[in-house]
Amino acid sequence: MIEFQNITKMYRVVKRQAGFGNAVKALFSREYETIHALNNVSFQVADGEIVGYIGPNGAGKSTTIKIMCGILTPDSGNCIVNGRNPWRERTAYVREIGVVFGQRSKLWWDVPIIDSFELFRDMYKIETKVYKKNLEELSTLLDLGELLKTPARNLSLGQRMRCEIAASLLHDPKVLFLDEPTIGLDAVSKIAVRKFIKKINKEHGTTVIITTHDMQDIEALTERVLLIGRGKILLDGNIEELKRRTSTEKRIDIKFVGAPPAICAGMKCQEIKQNQMRISLDPHILSVPDAIAYFAAHTGLTDISVSDISTEEMVAALYKEYDI
């Protein structure tokens, strides 16, 4: 159970104009600007949930994660995870969480992965039996095998990320924090990582908090998303609901032979290429079956597909709506 209560975190940033004159001036007097990274933020996450945490760059995602990991101390408010306060009981607390920063490695650079893992074993005081079992399970699931003997610096990003995730799960954490875990990964690795996270959540009941800019991560993993912007939680809800809320428009892609079809009321042409067309449809004016019938009757139709707007577009629309 994660409880995040009325947390506020401010940063003081030095304001300086460009140019040599201003640089000299800044030596003597400074102007500071206060930035509310988090402004009275509250939310709750139940055990075993997977929650996607989204928002544009600089919205306060990392700050939230860092507070929950015990790295940062907020200016005010309280946070309780597994019955503990992350910054007051840091050592006892971090024993029960796993953290993966996509941008930052926690493995030792020059030593083989297995050596890093053994260090983690001693660091977390994991019992030999548990360690062996977890290591075996993780290396099978994440296909580590030969990688274990290789130093971290010789691994590709995708390989290393698999090792990072394994490293953060060796001690059976109750909560797993993932900060952009799929950044820079190729399609195959991304899918492998997503599958694995889902599996761990299902089998061990691990609570997962994930921040990402990759909406496919969100779609594949989470049911609930939190949208943060300018230091505030703007939305908290189910992803399908959000989509419906943002837009009821349907998208129709058609392929045809011969002349492109004329457009009728309720449709909008978005893109037209040779023998292909993308239309957005307002189902309140013209229903989907009617639209399909219309195209079938008026065009040399070869293919048609109907879809909701993508998560990507939904999020972009949300960012626009909230002006963040």
């Binding site: 015990g70 050592t91 971090v94 930052r104 926690k106 977390y124």
Partner: peptide
């Protein structure tokens, strides 16, 4: 360099 973050997420002094 931000390396201090990873020390803070370890359960040690």
């Amino acid at each position: 360099s931000g390396n201090f973050d990873r020390m803070l997420i370890r359960p040690r002094n």
